[in-house]
Design a protein around this nucleic acid. Sequence first.
DNA 1: TAGATTGTTAATCGATTAACAATC
DNA 2: TAGATTGTTAATCGATTAACAATC
Lengths: 214, 214
Amino acid sequence: MQKTISPQTLRRLPAYLHYLRVLLKKGAVNISATMIACELNLNDVQVRKDLALVSGSGRPKTGYEIKNLISDIEHCLGYGNGDRAVIIGAGELGCALLTYEGFTEYGIDIVAAFDIDRSMKDTTMNGKQVFSVEKLPAVCSERKINIGIITVEAKDAQKASNMLVENGVMAIWNFAPVHLAVPDHVLVQNENLGSSLVILSKQLANKLGTDQNS
Amino acid sequence: MQKTISPQTLRRLPAYLHYLRVLLKKGAVNISATMIACELNLNDVQVRKDLALVSGSGRPKTGYEIKNLISDIEHCLGYGNGDRAVIIGAGELGCALLTYEGFTEYGIDIVAAFDIDRSMKDTTMNGKQVFSVEKLPAVCSERKINIGIITVEAKDAQKASNMLVENGVMAIWNFAPVHLAVPDHVLVQNENLGSSLVILSKQLANKLGTDQNS
DNA sequence: TAGATTGTTAATCGATTAACAATC
DNA sequence: TAGATTGTTAATCGATTAACAATC
């Protein structure tokens, strides 16, 4: 039985993976937790603990073998599991995600985007297909889609969510600023870009305020 | 002196604000922390503690007056401070953010997008301007830009970051999967969409695994 | 008054960091 | 061997939750 990985650790693993791949490309063979921690602004013990959860390939004096560590993290994150996702909402944001290349780094394939505008003509963007939503059931069953991404307007998000759930999707990445009602077996991760930006803005205000006081 | 707000609380405030506005639109006047907690899947004491940090308008038996609470949270988050942002990288993602309407809800104005392709002709998208990067200094000083959003490729991100810093930007929202080197006084928030999606995918795998074991 | 709800103090929980032992 | 680095155990820190007092 694999040890469970805390949400905090899970958020750091992709960052380790990315950095290790950069190192490998540069021709490095080994890396110490201290170096990784320094590069990513983390505590070195924390890095060691995170890596111990997924690897066990660390050796005193030499550190970790980069190649092994990469494949251990990939394995942990499910790289190669063949996860496939579809997007509902082929507006600006949906199309941006459809053609975004950063998902392949983690082994996830965005198969196609759909638009709830049923009159929409099927088309292609950068080699990826955009369909009217009528084709959703066929694509979901043929391509075994397990992840759905919602980029429609708030008012249409629940409908989009229902369609995804009906077609067997188990996890939803929701960019619409609404709380989705889904069955217990479905996982929802909300991504609110407005809220992310306002957090940054507030942190900036805090920083400026503190600087003035000091 | 205002009490400092923890990062965790800060992440929940925009969600409260959004829900309160929905309630106000529906004609509601008062709301209890218990109700908010229920709607957003949070603990009610946590909600009360969060709100106590920004408001103080809660009254036993009746709860909080929605109008007051909204303006207290808005004030805390800096709504009305007139934060202005620019985007560097007018590709798919940059343009999607440029025309995304969810930022105005939190009082942040995306002024324009720039592309590092210097030969690019100035243009307009949904009423927002897209410029060649040469115009960045002028826009930053004229419009007092304090936030920069980076949506260029990884290899160009450091250059984009330097330009923003040189032009007085104090906070950077970075969508490129690289660690940016910036002076101490500049705040960076990294947003890695690939990593967000792989986290969801892993959580799904965990969930399926656990269900099978039980 | 009684009951609902806030706000605060104390207890719990989990994550981070520090200290140190193990090992190559 | 000595020194660098891992891995683990204990201490600290912060956030969440529980219990309860205050109040309208």
